[in-house]
């Protein structure tokens, strides 16, 4: 019984705002299933004493000082906006 069903893919696609065809859903279900199998394989490793890792690079404590730098020119900010209004990005009403 596969872990990644068509329904799982549909749910993930909906959360990611993706419209997938039936064929695509089946393709991704198969690919995700394979990825999960690989992860399960990794789970077999004995990781006793190995600290948890959330980042691939061994960096920590990277930051900047609290200094204000110039922002963009507003005309530039809105240059690609399809329907700017009053210095804002305008979009059609959000709720149907």
């Amino acid at each position: 019984m596969p872990e990644i069903t068509r329904e799982t893919v549909q749910k993930i696609a909906r959360l990611a705002n993706l419209n997938l065809t039936g064929v695509e859903q089946d393709t991704y279900a198969g690919q995700l299933e394979k990825i999960l199998e690989y992860v399960h394989k990794l789970n077999q490793l004995d990781t006793t004493g190995v600290p948890q890792t959330s980042h691939a690079l061994p960096l920590q404590d990277v930051w900047r000082e609290d200094v204000v730098t110039p922002s963009l020119d507003r005309d530039e900010v809105l240059a690609e906006a399809p329907d700017p209004s009053g210095g804002c990005f305008r979009v059609p009403r959000i709720i149907e």
Binding site: S85, C88, F89, R90, I94
Partner: peptide, 8 residues
């Protein structure tokens, strides 16, 4: 609302 405006 007929439209929404975004200020970032």
């Amino acid at each position: 609302a007929t439209s929404s405006l975004a200020d970032y």
